[in-house]
């Protein structure tokens, strides 16, 4: 009997074709990450250097008020942004799915903000929320002299101002993904549910949403990636202010590495970001991919 060709050479063309991407992933992503983690244990200033200082950078990091504020802001923004964009996105999609008139027009309107970059979004909302130019000024112009609305200048509210701009920009995309998912649900399921006399909201909650699991996973990944890398919106909208009220981890990393000329500290902060992503990612990947192999 002839031996079967080794699995290694099976489907050779595809494997050769993916070599460049594998190399890029290994060198750029994995290599870069390892390099960053290693150098986070040095006291590198403007240029990287191998002077080891152990965990000093991490001690300073967790003793820095600005970093703690950044983490807190990211948590607030992350949780609320996740919940609201999923809820609003799904509700909009469900409304859109009622065979309404001018669906194309509404879809375009809702998706339009997504075509704008975070920088533009940030600037637009900075002006809208600025007490001297924006909403407050307009309402006062109408005659309500004592009306006050300046979330970006109030340290307790500023992060919600950013959240609002982020939602305005992002929910359109979530809506489109959800709408695609809803359109993928077989008409017969709806008919069956109607025959059984199940109310529409129950059909959505207990039949349609569980069936849309893949769409939800995709959406979740897209939203989460956007949350962790939150940077440009903050820079454009508030610059981290007032004070340090809207600082985020990515901005801390950038400012430390380039403005404070303290690479070691920036590396330590980015390593912490990596760790937090891994903590979220590993259980999820295990659940998602580990399960399939069994079946």
């Amino acid at each position: 009997m002839s031996t079967r060709p080794s699995r290694l050479f099976h489907n050779m063309n595809a494997k050769i074709a993916s070599v460049p991407m594998v190399l890029t992933a290994m060198v750029v992503f994995l290599g870069g990450s390892i390099w960053t983690v290693v150098y986070s244990f040095t006291d590198s200033k403007l240029l990287p250097r191998e002077k080891w200082v152990g965990l000093d950078q991490y001690e300073r990091l967790w003793g820095t008020n600005r970093w703690l504020v950044s983490i807190e802001n990211l948590a607030i923004y992350g949780v609320l942004s996740l919940i609201f964009s999923l809820v609003i996105g799904f509700v909009l999609a469900a409304l859109m799915d009622q065979k309404i008139r001018f669906e194309d027009v509404f879809r375009t309107i809702f998706l339009y903000p997504f075509a704008l970059s975070f920088i533009v979004t940030g600037l637009v909302w900075q002006w809208l929320l600025n007490p001297d130019f924006g909403v407050q000024n307009v309402i006062r112009g109408i005659g309500f002299e004592s009306f006050t609305f300046d979330p970006l200048y109030d340290a307790d509210l500023a992060i919600y101002g950013i959240l609002f701009a982020g939602l305005w920009q992002g929910t359109g995309l979530v809506m489109c993904l959800m709408l695609a998912g809803l359109r993928g649900i077989d008409e017969d399921i709806w008919k069956a549910a109607r025959v059984d006399g199940i109310p529409a909201w129950k059909t959505y909650l207990f039949i349609v949403i569980p069936m849309m699991r893949p769409v939800f996973i995709t959406t979740l990944v897209i939203i989460t990636a956007g949350i962790v890398k939150l940077y440009d919106l903050v820079v454009a909208q508030t610059g981290g202010g007032p004070g340090i009220a809207t600082e985020v981890p990515a901005k801390y990393v950038y400012d430390m590495m380039f403005q404070a000329q303290n690479l070691g500290q920036g590396f330590a902060a980015s390593t912490m970001m990596l760790v937090s992503v891994i903590i979220i990612l590993i259980p999820w990947a295990y659940l998602e991919f580990g399960g399939k192999r069994r079946g």
Binding site: K45, N65, R66, G243, D255, M256, Q259, A260, Q261, N262
Partner: peptide, 15 residues
């Protein structure tokens, strides 16, 4: 150093 300077800036803008 710019590092110290950044720390002072962070403190002062917060203050």
């Amino acid at each position: 150093s710019p590092d110290t300077n950044t720390q002072i800036q962070d403190l002062m803008i917060q203050f």
